[in-house]
Nucleic acid binder design. Structure first.
Lengths: 334, 334
DNA sequence: CTGAAAGCGCTTACAG
DNA sequence: CTGAAAGCGCTTACAG
């Protein structure tokens, strides 16, 4: 099987023109059925493969979508974004597209450089998966390409985004704790860190408000520093009966902390998380949490970016995807 | 900033030819330094982006590497291959390449269809990450493209492969158990399932042989069915004092099983794993295991595939990357 | 139904 | 040092 068969090669063998071969292989009008069949058969036999690059250069599309993940979200213990990427990659199939992963290094983010993906016109659109710094958002905004934020958003930015419904998710799971007669409920997370955490915090707060519970500032527990590195969680003087953690991994960290201090879960303290990722089922007891609908987020993200490729003026604004509470064994009824 | 600036646009503005612009931007000989600087400056100002597709069509290279992962290795709880993919994606940077993930569906694997990645000439080489069926190996072999097996190999296939040193890794961790005075040591894994598991089993066996211990067939415990789905692990009549699990996830499953049956780890039973993935540190007690050098595997895989792109006759054969034992808390000295 | 011509954006080989 | 010509593999618009 010779390398690099082109339409011309097929055309020559059959004594027709490459235009005819092109039409036949892409099922266009204007070729007799007989010839069409003959061409397809020969193409198959010769091991012909379509050269996408040639098409790309014609219509200015790469048929690739870029997924940009900031380096700090790609640690060995943070499989969430890779799982999202996996779903995206799977659904790209139905659009005839492929996905290119570009991990954004911290240096690039700080020096505000464009991702290589962009400089080399490798993609027709780009999904930014995971919060980037404010200045870098401007860099992204200046890119001449359809773009979409996934799993975060920025108030000042006009860029479309798709997020899980952090606010109502946290609201509902806090309601669940209150229905189980908890009153001293702490929130675990750095509420200045990302918009997701902030929204989850506010959902938690809304639930407290609705139930006439006061928000004790001591019950907002920090889980990470400014750069996103996890820190030891410091418990307040009075131990809460329940903890709303901003994500499952932090719930996992909290389990450790509580165990070390001699508290049993859920006998002494109830804990809930958010994300329903691998940490939720690997802990003991298994974690009650809010499941993010990764499937739907990936699907919507692709639909949106494809719409924008077709029509650059297409606007979706911020779309929130509802999650659902998964009840496991980490909450006790008081 | 106008969309789609080309070299011609820059050339027109400066009253030079596009050939000169091409030379200037790629730092070729034959343009005065003065003009070169002027061209680069203008390109920057105009927001020019290089069109890789045009280059692709010239030299027949896509500057992409494909990573093919069989669907069954991409479950929510199987982050290992995604981690490997992540490392690959990171190292691709230094070659000026990008990575395209193609998850191979079970239907494609069964119907022996080429991955879409191949049919559309999207990549210059392909890394198959995770064992595929024997018939599908032949399909891969018939692909007219540099290819490499990562984390598995096939004896009949002439395709280069990079694997972690399963044999010696298992050998050494079994030695470690024996040094801790264990004598009744079981192996957990379906030894007909993949070459990795087989090799790990044989390393375990070598250790037994060397220490004059007999291999009791009842001490080979099955962990999965033919299709790779995990099954309940059935313990032998006489309980071993130690278990060599073929991977960390199975060790995790075994922990569950042993706990249910009332055995404590490591007081009653010692357990070791393989891979040092997320399961190793999320279990309690933390798992003593063999760390696979993902970093080095990814690096070698890329080096090899790039060598093959440069020279299709390049042959590496099977390369084994040494792992190392990570001692944690799941083994007790008898 | 079939095909010659032109063009997508770049590079290479050659001429001046 | 600079550029006209040809070509990579395909498609589109048009002519026959």
């Amino acid at each position: 099987m010779k390398s690099n068969i082109t339409m011309k090669d097929i055309a020559n063998k059959l004594g027709v023109s490459s235009v005819t071969v092109s039409k036949a292989l892409s099922n266009k009008e204007g070729v007799s059925d007989e010839l069409k069949t003959k061409i397809k058969k020969l193409a198959e036999d010769m091991g012909y493969r379509y050269n996408t690059a040639a098409k790309s250069i014609k219509d200015g599309l790469s048929y690739n979508i870029g997924v940009l993940i900031p380096e700090r979200f790609t640690g060995i213990n943070q499989s969430f974004y890779m799982t999202v990427y996996q779903h995206i990659s799977l659904h790209l199939e139905q659009y005839g597209y492929f996905g290119i992963l570009n991990i954004l290094s911290s240096e690039e983010e700080e020096s505000l450089s464009f991702p290589r993906l962009y400089n080399e016109k490798k993609v027709d659109g780009i999904i930014i998966l995971g919060q980037v710094s404010k200045p870098y958002i401007e860099t992204i905004q200046s890119m001449d390409l359809p773009k979409l934020f996934l799993d975060f958003y920025d108030e000042h930015s006009a860029i479309d985004s798709i997020v899980s419904d952090n606010f109502y998710g946290a609201y509902e799971i806090t309601n669940y704790l209150i229905r189980n007669n908890h009153k001293k409920i702490a929130f675990v997370g750095n509420i200045y860190s990302t918009s997701s955490i902030q929204d989850r915090f506010l959902g938690y707060y809304k639930s407290l408000l609705e139930h006439g519970l006061t928000l004790d500032p001591q019950f907002i527990l920090n889980d990470r520093d400014k750069r996103g590195t996890y820190i030891d969680i410091v418990l307040p003087k009075e131990t809460p009966t329940a903890f709303v953690c901003n994500c499952d991994q932090v719930a996992y960290n909290l389990y450790d902390r509580l165990n070390t201090l001699g508290y049993r879960i859920p006998e002494d303290c109830s804990v809930v998380g958010f994300d329903n990722d691998i940490y939720a089922t690997l802990t003991s007891p298994k974690l009650t949490t809010v499941a993010v609908d990764i499937e739907k987020m990936a699907q919507l993200a692709l639909k949106t970016i494809m719409d924008k490729i077709d029509n650059p003026d297409h606007k979706n604004g911020r779309i929130q995807v509802q999650g659902k509470i998964i009840i496991r064994d980490s909450v006790r009824t008081l």
